[in-house]
Amino acid sequence: MMKRLRRLTAVLSLIAMTIMMTGCTDKIVVLNPKGEIGKHQLDLIIISSVLCLVVLVPVLILAFYIAWKYKHRPGKDTKYSPKWEHSTKLETIWWGIPIVVIAILGIITVKYTHMLEPSKPLKHEAKPLVIEVTSLDWKWLFQYPEQGIATVNYVEFPANVPIEFRLTSDAPMNSFWIPQLGGQIYTMSGMAMKLHLIADEPGSYMGSGANFSGKDFGKMQFTANATSQEEFDGWVQQIKGSSPALTTEGYLQLAEPGVSDLQSFSSIPEGLFQKIVTKYSSGHNHGSASEQADSKE
């Protein structure tokens, strides 16, 4: 009796915790998306959870019921069939149920995988804003090729405009993740990856480097600010007016291992991003640097 009570308290406290958690969902960023991609991904998380729970809940109930029902006590008279070891009907059922569930989930997954392929441009009337992202030891560099400006460890863009992130690395691999806008992608040297995201409303969103890249990897957090188009244009003008320029030497200095505060630059060297990508291209004879970069597109 005591044992069952203890088990019950454990289960109850778990459920209580879950409810408590869901009470403050805005902290749970993945469950509180602010962009189209993040919302689709949340849908998918919910669909797959429900499908799994369809199997999970009966199994858990069955497990505890059977353990309770058939626990042997003197004087208790439950059925005992020590030689019962096979039932084609039952086994077909429990091969069948998971197969059906996984088949459904598999079809949904394949559909969503194509729909949410990170390199696929979003369908939107606005022209996408291109931001070139480079992960360095241990900071993020964001370049705006169309605006000709750059920032370090924070990124600004207008809400309701699709953003085309092009990503590479000039250091060990990292991963670019803004949970409230949508899932992550690796930043790898020698390649230009693409990630398309959009913010549905203005706000300040947490971003991080999600893949371990050495000593101060923990300092690779950044803020992604989605603003109105006017605010964004004003911000670009302000950077252009007041910040220093990023030179090639300046970039080399920036790329040295170390942490960095927020920085901004009023101009960027011509073709810097492409140079960072080709620097590590695997140097095929037939100069496949661009090939490698292109093949990811």
Partner: peptide, 27 residues
């Protein structure tokens, strides 16, 4: 083991859903 592994297995299936994994990966 049974409840623990069943729940762990279920979250494993969640992780296997590739686009959803973009949000779980490395977290």
């Amino acid at each position: 083991f049974i409840p623990c592994f069943v729940v762990g297995g279920m979250t494993g299936v969640l992780l296997s859903v590739a686009p959803a994994d973009f949000q779980f990966h490395n977290s």
